[in-house]
Design a protein around this nucleic acid. Structure first.
Lengths: 109, 109
DNA sequence: ATTATAAGACACCGTTTGGTGTCTTGTCAA
DNA sequence: TTGACAAGACACCAAACGGTGTCTTATAAT
């Protein structure tokens, strides 16, 4: 039963820097066991495991047991919502840049 | 002194749905006073004001006093970091879509 | 068969978060 | 000039967050 309906807001899931780092690490290899991930952080296994649980609740990660280890895999598609959301506001900061450029040009005269 | 160095992580600032709604509301009009924003939410003025303070700390909003009201304005450029971050992972969910399509095609045979 | 490793489950804890209410100050309107 | 409105400042609170440590179970290695 691989959690399909997201119980956790994706925006919430990526808010924590540790979790963004986990996403990055998982993007560099296709499957990583918990203990190997834990080794990258200055915190204990339990904490990292909790962060991964949150990523899983947001649908950003799946896990499977292999022998005695639990291997995690990135499932990036929910990030599409983030990109779309931010892209929507692109026009606004582009507009700001435009106005900034205008001001700079005026000052140079 | 309009806060220039972001004391607050932008990812953190946009994690809350109320704050995302504020961003949306501010994108629809160029300047909105606090009481008018408050009217859109099921919570008190103090709470909305706190959310706006967090947005300001992330550089997403500026405010100015006009008479007895404080008017807020969207400053969207920090959202660029969000878009860039998410866009980086685009290839991963595209890859997933590709693999999903392959699986579906295989099943159809 | 024994020992070491991987990780789940759970209780615990201090800090942050997201809300409240109240009091005060400044400004606009009658 | 009196009253109403906008909002800052502050104290307060319950719940969530991000970490810890310990105990147990399953698997791998010697």
């Amino acid at each position: 039963m691989s959690e399909n309906n997201p119980l956790r807001d994706v925006f919430d899931a990526i808010a924590d820097p540790t979790r963004r780092r986990l996403i990055q690490l998982l993007s560099e290899a296709d499957e990583v066991p918990l203990h190997e991930l834990t080794a990258q952080f200055p915190m204990g296994r339990t904490a990292v495991s909790k962060h991964l649980a949150i990523l899983r609740e947001a649908g950003l990660v799946t896990d499977r047991k292999v022998g005695r280890e639990t291997r995690y895999r990135l499932h990036a598609s929910p990030l599409r919502e983030i990109e779309d959301w931010a892209a929507y506001y692109r026009k606004f900061w582009q507009k700001n840049l435009l106005r900034l450029n205008q001001l700079l040009e005026e000052e140079e005269e």
